[in-house]
């Protein structure tokens, strides 16, 4: 039996096992007043519910991922040879990330892109935190209702615009003959246009801007529930503003900060549009490499292996940071 068939069989076995267990439990502790799911909803509606949920979890969530996992442990083969004698289980796709299969040298290009992606994503997360914390604090604690509404609108409305359109409009702003360079040259700060796109400024701006809302709302939610009297009490006891934030607001908002940072980091590391459209020509973004394996080289096994490497690294990084700042995972995903 091939390993692909096994991947499709596993969910079926799990479902069957759960169904048998529920039957067994129903027989053990039979409650005569308890109505079964089908008795409560009727047979037709019951089947429709179960069928839709099963379809969604099985075909749209579980199986594609499982298929990718299996795929990443196979060699790249033309369709005719799939399932043949050459189609063996292998970890070659994973090792190819470290060692180039063609010449046996270290695969520095991809490893560099990988580290670069993680570092930039972490930095973007930090930048977003620095931008969003004051904004969220203002919105949650000190702003008047009117101004907060206006600010909220100003933050949300740009997100109605398509992501790619947004990336290109930032590109227009930052281009050599774009508004910003024209302005800088107009007031005489520079003589020649600055290459904002070539030096990756565009990518940083794009990545930060794309994830602004994702950071601001968890922070806002956390800070908003802080009792104003606590801030005033700290102030009354003699604390200057920065100590109030250090000792009272930030410890209280820590779960919100953790949740915002986790999401922004994950999304930044997995983003495609900003690095692709706003990054410099020599910038190698790891997600772009994954994308190219799928759609340029049609090498799905290696693409999925790379995707899982990125996923594993991101999860490990997030867990490490949560441990470092003593936040429980449960608090961060609230």
């Amino acid at each position: 039996m091939s390993s692909r068939a096994l991947a499709f069989l596993v969910p079926a076995i799990v479902i069957l096992a759960f169904w048998l267990m529920s039957r067994w439990e129903a027989r053990q502790g039979h409650d005569p007043t308890h109505k079964s799911f089908f008795e409560r909803n009727g047979t037709v509606l019951g089947i429709a519910f179960v069928g839709l949920v099963a379809f969604w979890t099985l075909f749209l969530v579980t199986l594609p991922y499982l298929y990718m996992v299996v795929e990443s442990f196979h060699p790249r083969l033309p369709p005719a040879k799939r399932g043949g004698p050459e189609d063996i289980a292998t970890i070659a796709q994973y090792t190819s990330f470290f060692v180039n299969p063609t010449d046996g040298a270290w695969n520095t290009t991809h490893m560099y892109a990988f580290v670069y992606t993680i570092v930039v994503s972490a930095a973007v997360t930090f930048i977003n935190l620095c931008i969003c914390y004051p904004l969220a604090y203002y919105m949650a604690q000190s702003g008047t209702t009117q101004k907060v509404r206006l600010l909220m609108l100003g933050l949300i409305v740009p997100y109605w615009v398509n992501e790619i359109l947004r990336a290109f409009s930032i590109r227009l702003l930052l281009a050599s003959k774009g508004l910003i360079n024209q302005g800088l040259m107009g007031i005489g700060i520079t003589d020649a246009p600055i290459d904002f796109l070539g030096n990756n400024t565009g990518m940083w701006v794009g990545l930060s801007y794309a994830n602004l809302l994702i950071m601001i709302f968890p922070l806002y939610n956390a800070i908003e529930s802080l009792d104003k009297n606590q801030i005033e009490a700290a102030r009354d006891l003699g604390a200057p503003w920065w100590k109030i934030h250090r000792d009272v607001v930030i410890p209280y908002a820590k779960p919100g900060i953790a949740s915002g940072c986790t999401m922004v980091f994950m999304l930044a590391a997995g983003s495609l549009a900003a690095p692709l459209f706003l990054g410099g020509p020599r910038t190698l973004w790891f997600t772009s490499i994954v994308y190219d394996f799928f759609f340029q080289a049609f090498n799905w096994p290696r693409g999925s292996a790379y995707a899982f490497i990125l996923l594993a690294a991101c999860i490990a990084f997030v867990m490490f940071m949560l441990r470092l700042f003593k936040v429980k995972l449960g608090e961060a995903i609230r």
């Binding site: 009297n229 005033e232 009490a233 700290a234 009354d236 604390a239 000792d247």
Partner: peptide, 20 residues
């Protein structure tokens, strides 16, 4: 002179102790 610089201390109606 701000509240953090005055020789006063305030006890709030809800006490506002720091829960953490």
């Amino acid at each position: 002179i701000g509240p953090n610089k005055r020789p006063t201390a305030l006890i709030f109606q809800n006490l506002a102790l720091f829960p953490l």
